[in-house]
């Protein structure tokens, strides 16, 4: 999708929204480590112009569903229109989590910075995890 919406502001055309092609990011992504204790999987969806991420934290017997959060998309270069990275932020009450995400050779790299706000004594911490697409790969 390459949809640049222009509108007139004080007589000058200004680009106010530049939708990037998100096809490389959409879908379900699973942690490459089956025994991960952090994020188990991610779902990246598009509804109209809205792109959202849904995180599932590792849990037993079921993963923890964090719900959806909006994302901000980024391309690899200013002149490109393919989204290959995004940021997102979860405010979950007792903790907040920044997600800094980028594609690298088909692997989705997810950096999370977690801040606890519940007085539990748990330190803020950083983690990096790797995810592969669960979409079938076309063989040529």
């Amino acid at each position: 999708m390459n949809d640049t919406k222009l509108y007139e502001a004080a007589g000058t055309a200004v680009a106010v929204e530049r939708m990037l092609d998100v096809s490389a990011l959409l879908g379900e992504w699973s942690n490459t480590n089956d025994s991960a204790t952090g994020i188990a999987r991610l779902l990246i969806t598009q509804t109209g112009n809205e792109i959202a991420v849904r995180v599932f934290g590792a849990g037993q017997p079921q993963p923890f569903d964090w719900g959806e959060a909006p994302v901000e998309l980024f391309a690899e270069l200013p002149e490109l229109k393919q989204a290959t990275s995004f940021t997102s932020f979860y405010d979950l009450g007792f903790m907040s989590v920044w997600l800094l995400v980028y594609l690298n050779k088909g692997v989705l790299v997810v950096i999370s910075l977690t801040e606890f706000q519940d007085g539990s004594g748990r330190s803020n911490y950083w983690a990096r995890e790797f995810f592969c697409s669960r979409e079938p790969v076309a063989i040529r």
Partner: peptide, 10 residues
């Protein structure tokens, strides 16, 4: 509000 229409980038 980049008038040149450049993309946000990483």
């Amino acid at each position: 509000n980049d008038a040149a229409g450049r993309s946000n980038y990483f």
